[in-house]
Design a protein around this nucleic acid. Structure first.
Lengths: 159, 159
DNA sequence: GGGAGATTGTTTTATATCCAACAATCCAAC
DNA sequence: GTTGGATTGTTGGATATAAAACAATCTCCC
């Protein structure tokens, strides 16, 4: 981690060295920082559209799986189902998704994108692809597949 | 991802396949899921102690850098400084940290662990080490250094 | 000295998130 | 058929998080 030279009075200039101790080499801690940085980077790109990364993934999963239930969506998304309730209410109110009752099971909803939702998803996908290009550049083509495989393994075995 | 056989009526049993579409191969999405899984795994381990991963890192950074300011701590932790205000208030109220005014600069606090805070950190470190062993097992010794280097690179270049 | 601009920590406001509890509904075993 | 247990989506309570605005304070440059 390159850092700028300290200001001449030796006081804080926003980059004074911090001793990370054992954290420096902990995968868990570095995973959190990397995810946080990636999230912030995406958020900058999608700021003008006004949606954050989590919402983008939710929309995409609905678009990819028309008729999906809220519970299945929450699992695919790695979030509790109660987290989705206000989010989907908001999407529905803004006309981005349709919620229809399932025939034969009156508990579940079937979720699907409206044309407006599909258009918004298209815009978000542009941001996401730009973001992925940034990530690919940082990760490097050489290690990409291996890196991705390890991330998936962590999700599968620690979830 | 192994999944149990579908129930014989073909309906949801909590593991029906979901089409991830492009998300499947996006680093950003998989990074989020992996971090989420790692976080949840640590939370299970530290549940009895009653602190979550973010707090553990905060305590450790204070222990490692006695006298650190809140702003420097928030940067090292990858969190906004306003996020720390209620957390540190809670730590101080519970006698885990000491906040003393800095001589010569009446804006900043100097943070340090109390003996009680140090004891709690010790317990949390035990959990964290167990968690790291789990992560090491999943990541594999062979790829560990490379994986860690990529995480650090993402933090440094996208933050 | 004196002021312009930067920095520090707090407050406010708005989301996001989980967990536990809940009502409605379904399913399977009897 | 009935009924006990499972599932679905919602609600309420708690914590976490960021952004913007703010008051107090410091620094730098003249």
């Amino acid at each position: 981690m390159a850092r700028p030279p300290a200001s001449r009075n030796g006081k804080s200039n926003g980059a004074e060295p911090v001793d990370y101790g054992p954290l420096e080499n902990w995968i868990g801690f570095n995973l959190r920082l990397a995810q946080s940085a990636s999230f912030a980077s995406f958020a900058r790109l999608s700021k003008e559209i006004g949606e954050r990364p989590g919402r983008m993934a939710t929309l995409r999963l609905i678009g990819q799986n028309p008729g999906i239930s809220q519970t299945a969506l929450s699992r695919a998304n790695g979030r509790d189902k109660s987290t989705l309730t206000p989010l989907l209410t908001d999407f529905a109110k803004r006309g981005l998704i349709r919620r229809t009752r399932t025939r034969g099971d009156r508990r579940t909803y079937r979720l699907a994108l409206t044309p407006a939702g599909d258009r918004l998803l298209g815009q978000l996908t542009d941001c996401a692809q730009e973001h992925e290009r940034d990530l690919d550049r940082v990760v490097g083509l050489r290690d990409r597949a291996r890196f991705l495989a390890i991330l998936r393994k962590i999700t599968a075995e620690l979830g």
